[in-house]
């Protein structure tokens, strides 16, 4: 399962609230551990990456948050400006044509260009070379060994991935079309690009993940590398021997009352939570023939660079 680290771009996608940012950060730490440089492109403007690493908001610029771990917050406005300026070459022309108060709402509101342009920024990052050259025919080592895209929640995440095809259908010819085609080629290139699905071991996230996987297969020509099940309640006992003693521990604890009884009740709750989570994971595995990784539940305040590194051990199947 070394495949993911050999890719150039990984889109981390999933329902809102399942922990896409944490998994993106975890993956970045894992990549760093392998001695490689990655950049996490955050697509929703929430600056969660910066928050996780206790860093000032990064904005639309590359910042190193930890050794070999970089981040950028891709906001549609800045990405659009950058993109159009490059296409038009002259700021004045850009200001006159696209900052026009009639054209701006048309481009973003009606055509939904911001999705395409955000996806285009991902391609830019993939193209970037150490020597500063851009474009598809750049030479020399890549600036980023892996571009990790912390995607918007399900529906919007999907429209981001569908945007190149949608624009290709609309335009058929012209620079916009050419650009969409290049992005689509990157998405469809299985040697370079993958999607990583993130979910929780719960009813709704599992259902939504199954739908998302089906939609990706139907509407987007892209590789799905695997599924990360986040926030899984841990196994209570590490060994059969210990598990076999639980009935006795339970009897002793309940008889003793106080903290001992409370500990037993907490243990029973975990056993029930774990059993339910296993059912959900079973359903997911039954329907998706993909590699799986399970990441245990953590208290959020515990999440710092060190915790992310330790979480990374649960993504070992990726490396």
């Amino acid at each position: 399962m070394k495949e993911l680290l050999d890719k150039r771009v990984v889109f981390v996608v999933g329902k809102g609230g399942v922990g896409k940012s944490v998994i993106s950060a975890t993956l970045a730490m894992r990549v760093a551990k392998a001695g490689m440089r990655s950049i996490v492109a955050e697509m929703n403007g929430a600056e969660t990456m910066a928050a996780l690493f206790d860093h000032e908001p990064v904005g639309y610029e590359t910042h190193e948050l930890a050794p070999r771990v970089h981040a950028i917050s891709v906001t549609p406005n800045r990405a659009t400006e950058e993109y159009l300026l490059r296409m038009l070459r002259f700021r004045l022309l850009y200001e006159l044509v696209f900052r026009n108060r009639y054209i701006e709402p048309f481009m973003n509101g009606v055509l939904g260009l911001s999705d395409l342009i955000s996806a285009g920024k991902v391609m830019d990052l993939e193209w970037e070379r150490v020597n500063g050259s851009h474009g598809p025919s750049g030479k020399g080592p890549h600036q980023w060994d892996l571009v990790i895209v912390d995607s918007p929640a399900t529906g919007h995440g999907l429209s981001l991935l569908r945007s190149p095809k949608a624009i290709m259908d609309l335009t058929r010819i012209g620079p916009m079309h050419t650009n969409a085609k290049q992005i689509q080629e990157l998405l469809a290139d299985r040697s370079r690009t993958s999607v990583l699905l993130v979910t929780l071991a719960e009813e709704m996230p599992v259902s939504e993940t199954l739908e998302l996987a089906a939609d990706l297969r139907k509407h987007v020509d892209i590789d799905i590398a695997g599924v990360v099940v986040n926030g899984v309640p841990p196994k209570l006992f590490a060994s059969e021997e210990a598990a076999a003693q639980f009935d006795e521990v339970r009897a002793v604890g309940l008889a003793a009352g106080g903290q001992a009884a409370a500990a037993v009740r907490d243990a029973e709750r975990l056993l029930r939570d774990r059993a339910r989570a296993e059912e959900h994971i079973k359903r997911l595995r039954g329907e998706l023939d993909l590699p799986f990784a399970e990441v245990p539940m953590l208290a959020r305040r515990d999440l710092d660079a060190e915790a992310l590194t330790s979480l990374g051990t649960h993504l070992e199947w990726l490396a």
């Binding site: 021997e241 210990a242 598990a243 003693q245 639980f246 500990a263 907490d266 243990a267 709750r269």
Partner: peptide
């Protein structure tokens, strides 16, 4: 065999919660 591990697991979970 297993008792001390079981107690530790139950206690660790209690503290974690």
């Amino acid at each position: 065999p297993g008792w001390d591990d079981a107690v530790e697991a139950v206690w660790g979970n209690h503290r974690r919660r």
